[in-house]
């Protein structure tokens, strides 16, 4: 098992395996993304009380759900960096932070649009769900800032790893804010496959496709960014120079 773990940490191994997997992941992402967006924005039936604004829901839920994955991912990568000093973990963490900030921003933007129509307000400072999501956006920006603030790459990696572990607590708060406190934001919808109940298949299937598409988008973009980082950091090694020569 430890052999496998050590192999996983090798940038070269990751580069080669991702070369094989990327085309498949990227094409699956494209298909799901097109199906999801067309379905959500053109074919989703109107909701009985919110009419066509539930079309925002499909995108908002998918992006918001994915944005919660960034801090746990960065915390795991950070722990590996701190304990095992694996180079690859830090490369992933470095590029996860700005991507996560974008995901949080899109969550806030789509949520605001939806809220302005349905709730009658763009933003409420007293809503724990909204504010904790904004906090995640700022935390991710601060991880990005911290990375560039410390010049020594080893030290900045360690500092970012610590901040990522701390940021995980906020993910729990975002997730449960709608259950612990009275807020304007609605709680998460229960999954239901029966046609008669609320959240029938017409809503959650479109949302499911979109969630898969957005998760794949997250994995593909992070992999692409990590591959660039590998080439840059390992530019003096022989295998990278060989790739550059042959391409």
């Amino acid at each position: 098992m430890w052999m496998w773990f050590a192999k996983l940490g090798s940038p070269r191994w990751f580069y080669e395996i991702s070369t094989k997997w990327l085309p498949w992941l990227a094409s699956a992402m494209c298909i799901l993304m097109i199906v999801g967006i067309v379905w959500a924005l053109l074919f989703l039936p109107p909701d009985y009380q919110q009419s066509f604004t539930t079309r925002i829901l499909v995108i908002h839920v998918a992006v918001a759900g994915t944005s919660l994955a960034f801090f746990p991912l960065m915390a795991v990568a950070g722990t590996i960096t701190l304990v095992w000093k694996m180079k690859l973990a830090d490369m992933v963490a470095k590029h996860a932070a700005p991507l996560g900030a974008w995901f949080s921003f899109v969550t806030l933007a789509t949520g605001s649009l939806w809220g302005s129509v349905m709730w009658g307000t763009w933003w409420e400072w007293t809503d724990a769900r909204l504010v904790s999501m904004l906090f995640q956006f700022f935390l991710l920006l601060s991880v990005v800032a911290l990375r560039s603030a410390i010049e020594d790459p080893d030290k900045s990696a360690k500092a970012c790893a610590l901040l990522s572990i701390v940021g995980c607590i906020n993910v729990v708060i975002i997730k449960y804010s709608v259950e612990w406190w009275n807020v304007l934001h609605q709680p998460s919808s229960p999954l239901s496959t029966s046609n008669g109940s609320a959240n029938g298949p017409e809503f959650w299937m479109a949302t499911g496709v979109m969630i898969l598409a957005v998760y794949l988008f997250f994995i593909v973009s992070l992999t692409l960014a990590t591959r660039n980082e590998i080439l840059q950091r390992e530019r003096r090694s022989q295998w990278v120079q060989e790739i550059v020569r042959t391409s």
Partner: peptide
Amino acid sequence: LAKHDENYMS
């Protein structure tokens, strides 16, 4: 402000 629930139905 209007508060709506988490149930959506066509």
